[in-house]
Write a protein that binds this DNA or RNA. Structure first.
Length: 422
RNA sequence: GGAGAGGUGGCCGAGCGGCUGAAGGCACAGGUUUGCUAAACCUGCGUAGGGGCAACUCUACCGAGGGUUCGAAUCCCUCCCUCUCCGCCA
């Protein structure tokens, strides 16, 4: 959420930002309501002041035993006016807040302006794409031949786009999760968390999934709880409504969680095999930092996610999202895409974003700025480190042999307990 | 699911319907003083939103939302959350 005062004072910037994100929101109406609100406020506060003053007079009169009947009669009228004005004010504020929750975060000045994902810019590439002396297979063929993923029974048990990992395939998930968590904890200094996988509405609002993306979420209606679409939600919300100690910042958390996404409306596009699933595993990194360091922290975050791919020796490229591709809450975002030899394609395995104070304002997460003595909003960031299924795709496809087996990346061997999947 | 207790400032914790935006303590910041890894004393110190160039000033906030009243942290109603005990389950 953006501060109303900030919107008022930077209207053109906010308008331009929403436009560049291709997000429609009626900011002129918002400003109109803002003006109305302040007008009503001034009126009603003047009346309340009068009420407070006269009430004190009444108290004084009663103390000395005098009558205060005329004052009380007068205040009855004032009380009635206050009630009416308060009601009007509430109406204005309701509409105002509704619109305010739909105002997207402003893209950072460095984010490339664009109209579609075609305008995302290349940042860097790592590793080299290996030539194979045979035709590489897509991962679903490899997996089915090795009997490590059961696609069809996933549909039976739950529906399409649910799968079962089997045997060494299932163990591969555990191995990857442990490998990633260990790296972030031991090498990058994160604290490991294991949060709830269902969250309430307030939490979903705080990180910005609601109101915009409600249709993409699984909802347990009886309890009005959402299955998390990403570990970002429960982990960022750990500190909702808290004032963090300045000396405790930055706070770094990493967490494994499954992620649940309905992917409403996205059927038919890149959906084969493990590319797009309703349930998948992910290791997430979340940072709470001071505003002045957040863009440095974003670069660090990116490098920490890259570190996982480098350790697995998987070639990847980093792109920066243009404004049209930036999410509702993000100010700046890098995607990491891994190369998949079988699919002959780049697959997004990580998204590293700086939300600045957008989530912190919604979630009310602050810290005491020692320089100003004031409570200020922290900046929040998060990045995948990494999403598992597409990492698995890359491992299966890039490490496949012409016999149909898969060589296990060296860094993973001690976790998986074998150096080849056959 | 049943029974009970409770939600007050960064934290702990008082609070007869008007003198309580809120005692007291802790923490924190500044200062004085004493030389011994710190203490004592003094001062300051909630948040948000209006108005004003500013000094400043007004309003709101004691879990949330309603109600009663001239006036509510305090009385009434509804809801939410936490804790304890019982039941159920892993």
């Amino acid at each position: 959420m953006l501060d109303l005062k900030f919107i008022r004072e930077n209207l053109e910037l906010v308008k331009k930002g929403a436009e560049n994100k291709r997000h429609k929101v009626d900011l002129d109406r918002l400003m109109e309501l803002d003006a109305q609100r302040r007008m009503h406020l001034q009126k009603v506060e003047k009346l309340k002041q009068e009420r407070n003053l006269v009430s004190q007079e009444i108290a004084a009169l009663k103390k000395t035993g005098d009558t205060a009947d005329s004052q009380i009669a007068q205040m009855q009228k004032v009380a009635e006016q206050i009630k009416q004005l308060d009601n009007q004010l509430r109406e204005v504020e309701t509409e105002l807040k509704e619109i305010q929750t739909w105002v997207p975060n402003v893209p950072h000045a460095s984010a490339p302006v664009g109209t579609s994902e075609a305008d995302n810019t290349d940042v860097k590439a790592w590793g080299s794409i290996q030539e194979m002396d045979f035709t590489p297979k897509p991962h679903w063929e490899i997996a089915e031949n090795l009997d490590i993923i059961d696609f069809s029974r996933g549909s039976k048990v739950s529906g399409s786009f649910f799968i079962n990992y089997k045997g060494i395939g299932a163990k591969l998930q555990r191995a990857l999760i442990s490998f990633m968590l260990d790296m972030h904890v031991e090498k990058h200094g994160y604290t490991e968390m294991l949060p709830p996988f269902v969250v309430n509405r307030t939490s979903m609002f705080a990180t910005g999934q609601l109101p915009k993306l409600e249709d993409d979420m699984y909802l347990a209606q009886v309890d009005d709880l959402f299955l998390i679409p990403t570990g970002e939600v429960p982990v960022t919300n750990l500190h909702r409504d808290e004032n963090l100690k300045s000396e405790d910042l930055p706070i770094l958390y990493t967490a494994y969680t499954p992620c649940f996404r309905r992917e409403a409306g996205s059927y038919g596009k890149d959906t084969r095999g493990l590319v797009r699933l309703h349930q998948f595993d992910k290791v997430e990194m979340v940072k709470f930092v001071k505003p002045e360091t957040s863009y440095d922290d974003l670069e660090t975050l990116l490098s920490e996610a890259e570190d996982v791919l480098q350790a697995l020796k998987l070639p990847y490229r980093v792109i920066e999202l243009c404004t049209a591709d930036l999410s509702f809450a993000a100010a700046k975002c890098y995607d990491i895409e891994v190369w998949a030899s079988g699919l002959q394609n780049w697959l997004e395995v990580s998204s590293c974003s700086n939300f600045e104070d957008f989530q912190a304002r919604r979630a009310n997460i602050r810290y005491r700025n020692m320089a100003t003595g004031k409570l200020e909003y922290v900046h929040t960031l998060n990045g995948s480190g990494l999403a598992l299924p597409r990492t698995v795709i890359a491992i299966l496809e890039n490490y496949q042999t012409d016999e149909g087996t898969v060589v296990v990346p060296e860094a993973l061997r001690k976790y998986l307990g074998t150096d080849i999947i056959k």
